[in-house]
């Protein structure tokens, strides 16, 4: 993988927001770079994409970084906004959303499920810092079992959407998502390839991307803000799908690929309306 950071930065990102104001050592920039690199490798232009975000570290740090058009929704609602936008935008415009884990799997989960159900063409990148980090570090719905956070001082004991047999990606698969994958921020080129395939799917794609938060998660769970510790901690507990070890929390790779297997939302709705308009019936 050729190092092209500065070229793609000036091509796709706004100098006002890059570098971001994220904490030093934050892993969010790695995820962000993976996505922009995927866009670049697909040969997409700034005008081809409308970029939406959530709030929180994941949302605010990526909001208005994209040189083109963009929005940030209120907490958890970017998926509903994106569905309305999907109807109004021409089908060839891509929608990419960079959001947080609390946003997608907590407050926004119902909207996310309905976006998957309708197979609305969008690529949702869930930047998972293992909890609610911009509010200071509370556990979320994909925080590994037992983790110590500001709101789980005795260790996170509830079952959540990463507990044994309860993967959030299963929920989304059942809801009709046509592309689902998981990568940790350190997956680099492998993750870029996956994101490319997600973007190419004409339908609902979601890539779950855990990344290191040294400031809050790292400091509470591992006892220090030392970036190396949290990077290692995540890397050691991630393994490619099929090569899981006993301690694997995040099995990485393409999880479910039904790309282009069923009608996409915009096309289906537009075709249907056009038929009713012409013939008065379906």
């Amino acid at each position: 993988m050729e190092y092209r950071s500065s070229r793609i930065t000036s091509k796709y990102l706004r100098s006002r927001k890059i570098p971001s104001t994220a904490c030093s050592g934050c892993g969010l920039g790695m995820n962000h770079k993976i996505v922009v690199q995927a866009v670049d490798e697909l040969g997409l232009e700034v005008a081809d994409i409308v970029w939406g975000t959530s709030i929180g570290c994941a949302g605010r740090q990526t909001f208005a970084t994209w040189k083109g058009d963009g929005f940030a929704g209120t907490h958890g609602r970017a998926y509903a906004i994106a569905r309305g936008l999907r109807i109004a935008l021409p089908p060839e415009k891509k929608i990419i959303l960079t959001v947080g884990d609390g946003d997608a799997f907590g407050i926004g989960l119902m909207h996310l499920i309905h976006a998957a159900r309708s197979n609305a063409d969008m690529t949702v990148i869930v930047n998972d810092n293992l909890g609610y980090q911009s509010t200071g570090g509370q556990y979320g719905w994909t925080t590994p079992q037992g983790s110590h956070t500001d709101s789980s001082p005795y260790g996170m004991f509830e079952h959540n959407l990463m507990s044994e047999g309860m993967d959030v990606l299963e929920i989304l698969k059942g809801a009709g998502a046509t592309f689902l994958a998981r990568h940790v921020a350190m997956d680099g080129a492998r993750a870029v390839e996956t994101v490319k395939r997600g973007i190419l799917n004409r339908g609902f794609s979601l890539i779950h991307m855990p990344y290191p938060c040294p400031t809050n998660f790292g400091s509470r769970e591992l006892g220090s803000r030392n970036q190396v510790n949290i990077y290692r901690w995540i890397e050691e507990q991630a393994a490619p799908l099929g090569q899981e070890k006993e301690n694997t929390v995040w099995a990485t790779g393409i999880w479910h690929d039904a790309s282009n297997s069923r009608p996409e939302f915009h096309e289906m709705v537009h075709d249907t309306v056009e038929k009713i308009r012409r013939t008065g019936t379906l």
Binding site: R77, A80, I81, R83, G84, I87, M110, V269, V273
Partner: peptide, 22 residues
């Protein structure tokens, strides 16, 4: 035109926001 039933009113108005933004 397009009629879309929403999963709740919060989504309904957000979808309208999306359509208006588009």
């Amino acid at each position: 035109g397009f009629y879309l039933q929403a999963e709740d009113e919060c989504a309904a108005m957000h979808m309208c926001i999306g359509a208006s933004l588009g």
